[in-house]
């Protein structure tokens, strides 16, 4: 279980972490923690899985490479077989089953723009099912933050 100090750490550090020579000391001062105590707490949050990451959050779109959300309508009797085919492709980063006629939703991540079309074609060829592409047209993302 996490305590009030852990919650305060999560809430503060979701907003940002200073870029200064002694950032743990600066962030710790706002929490009433010495830098070594803050470092230890963050290490425990990561080790216990309460936090999944600590560091710079890169905008994947900007690092080079292409991404595209895709969906397929997979007949129920073929679902597991198609899931295995899709998951086996290294270009597939996430894949979720969802409650809709379009029941399989996955994200393709490729090194080049053309790689998306190639991966889509490979999946269509391997499954004989159409893949619908849902590229981002505009981003209204503000932040990935929750109150701990």
């Amino acid at each position: 279980m996490i305590d009030a100090i852990d919650r305060a750490i999560i809430n503060l550090l979701q907003e940002g972490f200073p870029v200064v020579e002694h950032p743990f000391a600066e962030a710790g001062a706002q929490l009433g923690l010495a830098s070594d105590a803050l470092i230890e707490r963050i290490g425990e949050l990561l080790a216990s899985g309460v936090a999944t990451r600590f560091g710079p959050m890169y905008n994947a779109d900007r690092l080079g490479g292409a991404f595209c959300l895709c969906a397929m309508a997979v007949p129920a009797e073929r679902f597991d077989e198609v899931a295995a085919t899709v998951n086996a492709m290294p270009e597939v980063a996430h894949n979720y089953e969802r409650n809709h006629a379009l029941n399989m939703w996955f994200v393709l991540a490729t090194e080049t723009e053309d790689g998306i079309a190639d991966a889509v074609k490979a999946i269509e060829d391997a499954t004989a099912l159409p893949v619908l592409e849902f590229p981002k047209l505009e981003e209204y993302f503000i932040g990935f933050r929750v109150a701990a």
Binding site: E15, V19, T52, F54, M57
Partner: peptide, 8 residues
């Protein structure tokens, strides 16, 4: 970089 911080 979107920000530097923790991801719960």
């Amino acid at each position: 970089i979107r920000r530097i911080g923790i991801v719960p």
